[in-house]
Nucleic acid binder design. Sequence first.
DNA 1: CTGAAAGCGCTTACAG
DNA 2: CTGAAAGCGCTTACAG
Lengths: 341, 341
Amino acid sequence: MAGVRLRDVAERAGVSIRTVSNAVNGYAPVSDEVRARVEAAVAELGYKPNLMARNFKRGRTGLITLVVPELDVPYFSELARAVITKARAHGYTVVVDQTDGEPDRERELVMRDSAAAAMFDGVILSPLALTHADLARRGADQPLVLLGERIAESAYDHVAIDNVAAARTATEHLLDLGRRRIAAVGDQPWESGETAQLRTRGYRDAHEARGLAVEESLIVTTRRFHLASGAEAMAALLEHPQGPPDAVFCYNDLVALGAIRTLLTNGVRIPEDIAVVGFDDIEAGRYNTPTLTTISPDKTAIAQLAVDRLIARLDKEDETAPAELWAPYELVVRESTVAPV
Amino acid sequence: MAGVRLRDVAERAGVSIRTVSNAVNGYAPVSDEVRARVEAAVAELGYKPNLMARNFKRGRTGLITLVVPELDVPYFSELARAVITKARAHGYTVVVDQTDGEPDRERELVMRDSAAAAMFDGVILSPLALTHADLARRGADQPLVLLGERIAESAYDHVAIDNVAAARTATEHLLDLGRRRIAAVGDQPWESGETAQLRTRGYRDAHEARGLAVEESLIVTTRRFHLASGAEAMAALLEHPQGPPDAVFCYNDLVALGAIRTLLTNGVRIPEDIAVVGFDDIEAGRYNTPTLTTISPDKTAIAQLAVDRLIARLDKEDETAPAELWAPYELVVRESTVAPV
DNA sequence: CTGAAAGCGCTTACAG
DNA sequence: CTGAAAGCGCTTACAG
């Protein structure tokens, strides 16, 4: 059955290659009678189009790549799921690439001059290490949509939630509960730490808006956003010279779950002694004990906005200037801040 | 810069297209002097090979697809990560496709007659709905490696752990702790439930080997292996007519974590009142409170075995009969069965 | 609505 | 070690 070409079908159906191509692709109007003959020939011969030839000729693969730091971090796997589903609805196939935070790997996939990137019609990137300077050197022939706020105000479309406002909302929730010594875990005051810095900004804003001073030693830096980072940071906070905080705002849910682990093993009651808020709303937080209060970014909306925009660029349907696209988020209050009645 | 072809480079370097191709691909021996001229021309012109043309001509894309039910289930995202990493080391790119357990979607990707599958050089599939009958109708021209024990003894290579032995190990651990009313959560006594059935087999074997009767009503069926399934099943077990069990063997970690959630909200002590064992060793179980005792399949080994075999088939290096490839596993004892001292 | 034909940019026998 | 040329299987102006 292999090796059946368009021309074999054409011969069998007694029409030209052109007509078979039209019929198979549903392009130009083909008379019903001819279409039926072609379809019969396709079925008899077991013809399947050679996608590599088609891609080659069309100059497109129908492939887009989603580049994320780590696929097994729940936030990214949940996001990847949504992107794959949305892209499929448009007829595109998604290749998920993980960079492990390696700057070179990230550049390789995004910079059009690398062979690795050449197979993809477009790129959706959640950058970790890439800089504005890198992007400035990028050829503009392959559409790129950025995710998150690592790189804002570039020459590319950019989907994010308002991290400052979201972090402020999370912090205000703790302040509303009467907490006054709120730790912030996950600050990253270095070049690639823009997202974390925005969350720290929101944390500060919440305090400033109420005339409350921020206790600088309660802002804890973590290199990564993993369970282990949260567990370690929390252990350090429990040893704080002025005593442990009465609440913790963690910059993602993994950090929060790691922190909770440390608290529980130390006999600290949550939320009575220390309340905990996370960020991302991963599924694990909904079944943890205590369940985790968190900022829930609308991942489906993020995926939808990113895919729609990328495809609009691919199809040249949208040639407006690159824009910031904002996805909604909400605070989900659970047991880690408000004990069940 | 775009549109630079091999022939442009050839003209610039004053050699034939053939020679440029050889130099670029590092194929045949090219004299150092000529190579230098070609490389200079490549650099000056900014030449990048057209991968679609190359794929077309070679009849290969360098793409393999990993088909899993759900990408945001931790076991699969952790596995996907490993497969992507291993495949990249061989120069292959992985497309992760999720089927959401839809049989048609699974068939579409695996059956060679669909257009969707035509772009991939090979397939690694963790089947959920596909049957032996489906596979029997599959063309043999595209290598396929199966993951897990859903479909054993087919005409394809097959990577798995020994589920019967692993489940038996898990159950024996609980028996060794003196537990006698051990529930099994996750049985799936229907066609696509082979993996679950093997685990039930191991659970029974452990009892039989010690001359202990299995209390049939303690074997609980769940349609899926999610957190919610475990939470619901555990709630039902707490209402068991003969009283709750004194231990639970859950068929994956999500089910176990869901069960733990139900136990903790009902004031049940773990492991004192009820001990819990999971299966998969996902990261969340290592930071849960209590940490989760579980069967840990060596996911890296699974990925390595699957990728190595697939590529050996692709390269025709391995034309032996399809085989069962066994990956190691181990029981990891944590707080959910043995309280910390 | 359909046909005959060019050409996408590579790889690779065939010669030398 | 290198050249001239065929051909992979499509899509698509160009005609009619």
